[in-house]
Design a binder for these strands. Structure first.
Lengths: 333, 333
DNA sequence: CGGAATTCTGCAACGCGTTGCAAAACGTGT
DNA sequence: ACACGTTTTGCAACGCGTTGCAGAATTCCG
């Protein structure tokens, strides 16, 4: 049935060790036996079983990719990049969907059972405790899109959300908007808190700029729309809104337009992420670009480097964001 | 470091076999030793290593989830459902991104190395040869969203694309549209061919209905938009279009509106898939709903059942689709 | 060519669990 | 207490590969 080391060894007339060495990088083997083994291997269609190998090498090349964001289109881009970059390095993503999970225990246990080489938690809404739980179970872990800190519990890769809030406010103020609005995602998420803090801090530096604050229940179109509808119904008004995410922005814009307001004519909107859809013709969302490619590459770098230096203190790697102008803010005045 | 069977056995004062049996369903073990073992196990935080176990049981509970659609938002929904349904059954998705791959060899080899219990190819644009390659390598495989056939090479789960084409044409004709347009995805894809065939067949049953045909390079917004722009530029006109996918429809609509045409005022559009975004306020795409949940459940059923009956001939499981009315066709006349 | 240095090779043990089998323990009926 | 049937248990071998070690085969050098 399955062809193993032994079959190849017999066919090639060498010992099992010889065959094994033929397939391990940098092992000592003569070109003669190597040729014999390789011929037998291709004739039999043999390839070593990674899982059996992992028993002794203690490396499965499996990486747990853990997320709970399966409704925000930007995560399709993120999964695309993660899977490709991991594949490029010969690593395999074991996808874990935490959508309905409130405690880390089960996923920790499961990833331990599969002895993954590392875990990447890719989410801005999972509480920090999830990533920490993996670390406590002894797995290399990095939290991508997590909350940076001076002394983080685990490696964090992402953006400076406070700075993003500031950039958003500064951009709106530079456009001459007076009354500013912040429409955050779930209030408990650290990203929401930080973006708001930066936004308010920058706003308060400009005496003319008042600020209103709203939250959506989730990073989703419907939540953004509902939140903005509620704001309108309650007479809560701003000349321009910073929404904590692109898909939230689209929901908000839909509510604004339904209320007879023009974007950007009557109200400005700036998002965050710069997902693919933001650039679609007819969408044209002005937003803050998050450098996904770098964040993802850095996450993989960190998680793969961890076994080499287990004592290393967790670090935060922060990448700068930039505004990308499209059509939902009025022109600079 | 890692706690193994042996540690638990020593602590509980029993043999390794006893511990093993304690963790395998339906093995013969007395309640007394079970209690001892369980206590020792929780004290040590022990859980059996699935990978080591798989060596003898020949089951990893790993399922290869293979796709090349990381740019069509509907696939985020699909991945969400797949990962959840697999998890519900204690299976683990090993995600394989085939975006840049033109030959199946590498992925076949890789999934063999990880001895996955089965493979689900989730794509409507991968040629059938990919799924076949997995079968030839001896892996249980099902092609989700593939092309059904009377005697398929591998299990196929999906929809009847010819019927969908017919439904689309019938719907448009019932609305009184005369000149019909078909905007397909990549011309080589079987889905494109079949949807077109059904569409044309139904159209030809109604003498009044002429048909024009166009193809987009990919199932993407930009491709749909570009194809429709080209159609307009060349004076290729239809009163209503059936687009082979929702995201293609959105691109097409964007081109139509840019050209000063109102949808549905001047031109009707019907899509296919019924992705989440189709229902967004302001999008309101009339489309043909594909029952993803059932397709995915059936795919998993089939792939997990295969080892029990390896001789079973491949089957096609086809689920019916239905039109969901929103706002991109004029009212029934 | 002899001997030392180097490169290869096979043996055997190991990584972590599972499982067939025979012996041990237990239970029952008389 | 004995014979008999039914659990339960441990031993040892196995699944598939890797690796330390010691000896065999080469190579190198004077």
């Amino acid at each position: 049935m399955t062809v193993t080391l032994k079959h190849v060894a017999e066919r090639a007339g060498v010992s099992r060790s010889a065959v094994s060495r033929c397939f391990t990088e940098g092992a000592s083997i003569s070109s003669g036996t190597r040729a014999k083994v390789e011929r037998a291997a291709v004739e039999l269609g043999y390839f070593p079983n990674v899982l059996a190998r992992s028993l002794t090498t203690r490396s499965t090349r499996l990486i747990g990719l853990v997320s709970n964001n399966f409704h925000n289109p930007v995560f399709l881009q993120i999964f695309d990049l993660f899977t490709r970059r991991l594949q490029d390095r010969g690593l395999r993503p074991l996808l874990v969907n935490l959508s309905e999970e409130t405690a880390p225990a089960r996923s920790v246990q499961m990833l331990r059972q599969y002895s993954v080489d590392g875990v990447i938690v890719a989410s801005s809404t999972l509480p920090g405790g999830f990533a920490r739980a993996f670390r406590e179970a002894g797995m290399p872990v990095v939290h991508a899109f997590g909350r940076p800190a001076d002394r983080p519990d685990v490696h964090v890769v992402g953006i400076d959300n406070i700075a993003c809030g500031r950039i958003a406010a500064a951009t709106l103020i530079a456009r001459g908007y007076g009354r500013l609005g912040f429409l955050g995602g779930p209030q408990a998420a650290s990203t929401t808190q930080d973006r708001m803090a930066g936004f308010l801090a920058e706003g308060s530096r400009h005496p003319g700029a008042g600020t209103v604050i709203r939250f959506a229940d989730a990073y989703s179109f419907d939540a953004g729309r509902a939140a903005m509808q509620a704001a309108i119904a309650e007479g809560c008004f701003a000349e321009a809104w910073f929404c904590g995410d692109d898909v939230l922005s689209l929901g908000a814009i839909s509510a604004l337009r339904d209320a007879g307001l023009s974007v950007p004519g009557d109200v400005g909107v700036i998002g965050l992420n710069d997902m693919e859809m933001a650039g679609w013709a007819g969408v044209g969302l002005t937003t803050i670009h998050q450098p996904f490619d770098e964040i993802i590459a850095a996450s993989i770098d960190l998680v793969t480097a961890m076994p080499d230096d287990p004592a290393r203190a967790p670090v935060s790697r922060i990448f700068p964001c930039r505004v990308v102008e499209r059509g939902t803010l009025r022109a600079r005045c």
